[in-house]
Design a protein around this nucleic acid. Structure first.
Length: 745
DNA sequence: CAATCCCATTTTTTT
DNA sequence: AATGGGATTG
């Protein structure tokens, strides 16, 4: 085991060898933080003989947890009898709650559901409607954000009432209170509750708290700068007895203030845990000096920081590239072309394109596809967020926890079975009157028979269906159960009947879900565990084989590194985001985010911006000035890449890589033409749209999927025009001419 | 009373 | 582009 220590510098070794008592490790970007944590775990087990199961390591993301598990397993090559518990805050809490919630929290059973963001939003919306707050209240979205923020700080509705200074806060408190009540009725917890209720439970049930204290004698927390008050309290309760708490963090990388993270947690650590050992990791092993200097220059504009000196022995390095494009399209093409050259020149390069908002990925995807460069996108829409997947999961949730009203609402008329809005409304009304979950209200209404006969009939069918599914749940395998649901609900059949390509892909997704369930089963997971996993796995966690090119948001990039990083969209309003520009603290967080992005790069960092971009999918472009962060990078560290524009001849290979203006113009031209048409490759030249043709209203056309149709309308000119075509059996469809393989007859 | 059609709105970051 | 709400139709 001692050979492990040889691979570490002095500070790292101190951190790894520290075992008893509290420790705070201030780890700058790229200072080998993950290495220290994993080596420390390995060291505790291998050298100190600590039983693995008495170690708890907590992270924020599943990605980080998986990575940590993998690396610990790698270090401890001999198979262990037990394993350290490495998980996210949320999954850890789910485990604790499933085991201890009954009796400890009135009204809850171990089968509680986890409400996702969608469920939460709907819930808030119905509450706003119930209270008749329509126009006068803030949007459900922002109400939910404020509720979540309050929960993350451990505030209850009563606390809000008490400090309510204005009518708006009072309304918020009212909504909040009702929101909580509905969650209880539904035997459901939202994401914040998972933490909150666990903390409540640990405070209330001393014996449970002590048990976990004894079980986990060593606790590690990653990304401590991003912990909220509740997470702080959780950790505090878990370490009351032994105080063997080791936290790792970097205040310059705190980027979750908006979600309730309190930077004070890291700043006050030494006060909260007297005698804490403080260890600073200041040697950066990742980036070149140039990149480090550039990033440091930006973040040092912040007032709220302790300040630290990061150094590297990778002196010099390529200057930070800067490409300033006219438009976001051009920016995307530049990046794609640059990536192509980088990949050709260096077979080992790993490349990331980082951006502020997920919606920005689209342009980059398009540009990369055109150059047939493989990539993967982290974040955005994930598998588990697809409607059909959620539908099927909702059936499973409902069958597991009949009180789960969010799941019930989702599936009560999916697929359509004649239970419409009015019927659902009346059900909701009676649930509200009797203070019941929707399922209980349904039972009650069916017994009372006060509804129109037709409603009673369809509701009874639904009731029987779900009851049978609930009974079947325990009788069969997980995948078998999912298949049963698809069968009994006619879900697949309904999709098949649609016959559209969209329906086909939905069917495939459902198939994939059934397969995932079967795999989980092989691993010994129960349906409940599978549902937990689906609820807690985020889009950013699908960490597949490392692709050469990765697109992701700056937030998801935290903790990762790449040899080449493109930091895109550096324009005011986007980055810093316009919603953060009025508030100093928020602006400083944007700056830290910029720092996080820049320090992901090992060898080469390229900053880009496109002056104009289309907002939403509308026609008009909006123009934004360069991001202030660009000005904050010292100009001597920057190399401008817009050479073609200025007419200067390229000199180095990197400069050579710059696309010529002609390239870019050709790209933009082609983009507007139908050169990129997913269907055209197989369709053959003769069938594709002739862009010169004029479409006459009423004339017949043929579509490869929908068959014969009639043109009903045509907006705009040339290949960009939108056509409305009616197809017998399919209804009216709208096409953009250049993308639709419409054939004139 | 439910299904369908049309229009307005949407996008900050995540467990 | 996609979703949800509101109006219209069947």
């Amino acid at each position: 085991m001692s050979h492990l220590l040889d691979q570490l510098n002095t500070q790292q070794r101190t951190a790894v060898e520290h075992s008893e008592g509290p420790a705070l490790i201030l780890a700058g970007a790229g200072s080998g933080k993950t290495r220290v944590i994993t080596y420390r775990i390995a060291h505790l087990i291998g050298a100190k003989g600590i039983p693995p199961e008495s170690i708890l390591a907590v992270t924020f993301t599943n990605k980080a947890a998986d990575q940590m598990k993998e690396r610990v397993a790698h270090l401890l090559s001999d198979s262990l009898e037990s394993w350290p518990h490495i998980s996210t805050f949320h999954s850890f809490c789910v485990r604790v709650l499933r085991r201890n919630i009954e009796g400890a929290l009135p009204g809850y059973t171990r089968d509680f559901s986890i409400y996702d963001e969608d469920d939460q939003a709907r819930l808030v919306k119905t509450i706003v409607n119930e209270l008749g707050l329509g126009e006068q209240a803030a949007s459900p979205r922002s109400l939910l954000a404020r509720i979540s923020y309050a929960k993350n700080r451990g505030l209850a509705p009563q606390d809000l009432y008490r400090q309510a200074a204005d009518a708006a806060t009072e309304k918020l408190a009212t909504v909040f209170e009702r929101y909580e009540r509905k969650l209880r009725q539904a035997n459901a917890l939202d994401f914040d509750d998972l933490l909150l209720k666990t903390v409540e439970l640990l405070y209330a049930a001393k014996d449970v708290c002590e048990r976990y204290n004894q079980r986990f004698r060593y606790v590690l927390v990653d990304e401590y700068q991003d912990t909220s008050r509740i997470q702080y309290q959780l950790i505090r309760q878990l370490t009351l007895i032994h105080q063997n708490l080791c936290v790792v963090g970097d205040e310059d990388q705190s980027i979750y203030r908006w979600r309730g993270a309190e930077i004070e947690n890291i700043l006050n650590f030494e006060r909260d845990y007297p005698g804490a050992r403080l260890i600073r990791l200041e040697q950066n092993y990742r980036s070149t000096q140039v990149i480090l200097d550039a990033a440091t220059a930006v973040v040092s504009r912040n007032r709220a920081r302790k300040g630290k000196v990061l150094w590297t022995d990778r002196a010099g390095g390529a200057r930070v590239g800067l490409y300033e494009a006219q438009s976001a399209d051009e920016e995307a093409f530049f990046i794609a072309a640059e990536i192509q050259r980088t990949l050709a020149a260096d077979g080992d390069a790993t490349i990331a394109v980082l951006y502020r908002t997920n919606s920005q990925s689209r342009l980059f995807e398009e540009a990369l596809r055109r150059l047939t460069i493989g990539y993967r996108v982290v974040g955005g829409f994930s598998f588990y967020e697809r409607a059909e997947v959620k539908d099927l999961l909702s059936y499973a949730r409902l069958a597991t926890n009949l009180r789960d009203s969010a799941a019930l609402l989702r599936v009560i008329n999916t697929p359509a079975r004649g239970i419409g809005d009015t019927t659902v409304q009346s059900l909701q009304a009676s649930a509200r009157r009797a203070n019941l979950s929707l399922w209980e209200a349904l039972e009650q209404d069916l017994a009372a028979k006060l509804l129109p006969a037709r409603s009673l009939r369809v509701l009874e069918n639904f009731y029987n269906l779900v009851s049978e599914l609930a009974a079947a749940r325990g009788q069969m395998t997980m995948s078998g159960f999912f298949r049963e649901v698809l069968e009994r609900t006619n879900y697949l059949e309904t999709l098949r009947a649609e016959g559209t390509p969209e329906a086909e892909s939905r069917i495939e997704n459902l198939q994939e879900l059934v397969n995932a369930a079967a795999e989980a089963e092989d691993r010994g997971e129960t349906l409940a565990e599978f549902l937990d996993h689906a609820a807690l796995v985020s889009a950013a966690d699908d960490f597949e084989e490392r692709a050469r090119v990765t697109l992701m948001s700056l937030h998801s990039a935290k903790g990762l590194e790449f040899s080449v990083v493109f930091l895109a969209g550096l324009v005011e309003g986007l980055f810093p985001h316009k919603l953060s520009m009025d508030d100093d603290a928020a602006l400083e967080e944007e700056r830290r985010l910029c720092y996080v992005g820049m320090t992901r790069a090992r060898d080469r960092l390229i900053l880009t911006r496109g002056a104009s971009r289309r907002s939403f999918a509308r026609e008009d472009y909006e123009t934004s000035p360069p991001s202030r962060f660009l000005r904050e990078v010292p100009s001597e560290l920057i190399e401008t890449l817009n050479l073609a524009m200025t007419g200067v001849k390229p000199r180095t290979t990197w400069e050579n890589a710059v696309s010529s203006r002609a390239d870019i113009e050709r790209f933009l031209r082609e983009r507007r033409s139908n050169a990129w048409n997913p269907g055209s490759a197989s369709a053959g030249a003769g069938e594709t749209t002739r862009s010169t043709s004029r479409w006459k209203l009423g004339s017949p056309v043929r579509h490869p999927k929908f068959g014969l149709g009639t043109i009903l309308g045509c907006e705009g000119e040339g290949e960009d025009s939108k056509l409305t075509v009616s197809f017998p059996g399919y209804g009216k469809k709208k096409f953009v001419e250049k993308f639709a393989a419409l054939e004139k007859i």
